[in-house]
Amino acid sequence: MNYFLHIVILLEIYIILALSLNMKVGFTGLLSIAQAIFYGIGAYVTAIFMVELGSPFLLAIVISIVVSVFFSLFIAFIASRLRDLYFALATMAFQIILYAIIYNWTSLTNGPYGIAGIPQPEILGVAFDNLSSFALLGFVFMVLTILFLLWFQKTPFSRLLESTRDDELAVIAMGKNPKYYKRFSVCISGALAAIAGSLYATYVTYIDPSSFTIDESILIMSIVIIGGTGNIWGPVSGALFYILLPEVLKFIDIPDSIAASLRMIIYGFVLILIIRIKPDGFFGKYVFK
């Protein structure tokens, strides 16, 4: 049961994370390979505020969102100058630079030793201190995210994000500024990733830089690509596939040491195959080109 709940919580976090990146990749066509950084900012800001300053959980989340949105503006700046491959490359550079800062700024982040003893969330006197209540909390956040995106998809605003993704020049010819839409989508994306990060930090109660490496960013990107982009069910199915794959592998009784690598091998193969034969992913809407 506990193990099952653990998987559920991971799933909730990864669904939020995948949806957050989808905002960039699917809605605005920005293939960013830096999502782990915003996830990490969410986790670290929450940890620092809760451990060092004893701030309540909700306040910590709000501050994480603000900080993450601030850093998202860098991605917006990159997006206003670079496209396609060079945009992706610059986001990778951004990921590595911010990782170096998190790793080296020991007075704030405690560097490689990480931050331990992060309290479990408490909202209005209700403590989410066991697995089942935390799973419930994660579920609420996940559902809120999905509801928000379902609503957002139908707004006139999201149409303009999509037009920016499809053809920037035509958007300019329509008298609208694509930079504005990019900036917005990048900020929403950063905010959602920060929420996932806050949940992660309070769930595991100990974080260190190793959870927010470039490998993690590549992973989040591939979750979105495999599941599909441009809608909600694409990224959700990608997260489901990623989290449930090792559970399926358990049935074929292989030693743990091998299982982790095997999972990633299968995952890499699926990524290569999907992009070749079904570039819109499992359930995506937008065909990434």
Binding site: P156, R159, L160, E162, S163, R165, D166, D167, L169, A170, A173, M174, G230, K285, Y286, V287
Partner: peptide
């Protein structure tokens, strides 16, 4: 230059 991944109605509304 019509938006490839958008529906025709949405394209008109977006403009």
């Amino acid at each position: 230059r019509v938006f490839k991944n958008m529906r025709v109605l949405d394209i008109l509304l977006a403009s």
